[in-house]
Amino acid sequence: MPVDGPQVTDSPDRTDPVPVSTTVNGRPVTVCTSAATLLVDFLRDELGLRGTKRSCDVQMCGTCTVLVDGRPVSSCCHLAVDVDRRDVRTIEGLADPADTGNSIYQLFEDAFVHHAAVQCGFCTPGFLVTLTSLVRDGTLHAGSRSGQICAALRGNICRCTGYEPILHAVESVLATLPTPTASGEQGGTA
């Protein structure tokens, strides 16, 4: 009995191959994949990027968070074909030490280690992807208050830490960022 890919191509409803051209962690990827393939499965199974974890399947937990054109999305509820001609960045790309654009990520990694914000680790890449993008897009900054941080993290669940060490880690990183200018997001004593 054959065991791998080719023998399933005669099931037209789910396996009609669709061409996808995308950039994943800076690397151009052009493949044919099924129209039904979820982005999380595409990244994990077809590209072997298994740092992206799969948990709730219903866009609640945030473990599968990746960046599409810089914005965090739940890859469990995103189709692979929808990243055609888009830029995808996973935890592997953000954590790549060769990429000098990853200084924000590195601050968060250091802070998560220092504050013991990592336990089982299953949710951790998702948190770090989310946080990196929220700082890059200005949602979180030096003036962010704890309520804003919690609100920004409502799409990421952690069952081990009780969030407290994560929030401490986030606050410590935000404290090192430059204070936003008056024209940007309001900070301080709002």
Partner: peptide, 16 residues
């Protein structure tokens, strides 16, 4: 001390 497995887990390199 810092957990020896923490960075591995952050980077998505820990294998489940």
């Amino acid at each position: 001390v810092a957990r020896p497995d923490a960075r591995t887990k952050c980077r998505g390199e820990a294998v489940y």
